[in-house]
């Protein structure tokens, strides 16, 4: 499915930004994955030195191989799931609206949509050493409504995005005021 079909892009609409989490925020998960992958190899060296009879017995050997294989596949699935949760958090900004897709878990997704002219405040936060060096942070978007406030976490260049959103909101507001004036 193309992004245009996903957001049901209108004829006058242009996709300006597609924001995902900064890649550096996935590194801890990748490191955890590598550590979990190394555990069976470490256990193999332990077992082969301390309990070599386990590897010589046909039954225990077969069960250990099957268990290790299932463990590796479970790790891959876990890693894949974490990637899905990381990568499918998207914030799409067009010249007309903003759409925030939050993949909370594998079977839980929340989509918020708001028109740009409704944006009242945009705040960008950059906290921490890594966030400062790699230039990523949180952008919080507030509207007049109490129900819809969009927060995009760990996105690259949050200050630039904040400035762009303010500018786009102003432009959209002028367009809608012009529309309202014409309708009177």
């Amino acid at each position: 499915m193309h992004l245009a079909a996903f957001i049901k892009q209108k004829s006058y609409e242009k996709i300006l930004y597609v924001l995902r989490h900064h890649w550096i925020t996935f590194v801890p998960i990748a490191v955890l994955f590598l550590i979990l992958m190394a555990i069976p190899f470490a256990l193999y060296f332990l077992v082969s030195s301390l309990f070599p009879a386990l590897l010589e017995n046909q039954i225990s050997y077969a069960m250990l191989v099957l268990f290790a294989s299932a463990y590796f596949l479970a790790i891959y699935l876990f890693f894949f799931t974490r990637f899905i949760e990381f990568y499918l958090d998207i914030t799409i900004v067009t010249n007309d609206r903003l759409m925030d897709v939050e993949q909370r878990s594998l079977f839980s997704r929340s989509i918020s949509e708001l028109d740009l002219y409704r944006i009242q405040d945009v705040t960008s936060d950059v906290h921490g050493v890594f966030a400062t060096f790699f230039n990523y942070g949180t952008v919080s978007i507030k509207t007049a409504s109490n129900n819809i406030n969009v927060v995009a976490h760990d996105i690259p260049r949050p200050n630039k995005i904040r400035e762009a959103l303010i500018q786009l909101a102003d432009q959209d507001r002028k367009y809608h005021i012009h529309d309202a004036t014409l309708n009177e």
């Binding site: 699935l77 894949f80 499918l88 993949q103």
Partner: peptide, 26 residues
């Protein structure tokens, strides 16, 4: 039991791929 686990693994992997395609994240 291991083969049953493989089936579950395959199902979840396909669900992951479906999620990627359905959210235009390919």
């Amino acid at each position: 039991v291991y083969l049953l686990f493989l089936v579950v693994f395959l199902i979840f992997s396909l669900i992951h791929v479906y999620h990627i395609i359905a959210t235009a994240s390919l």
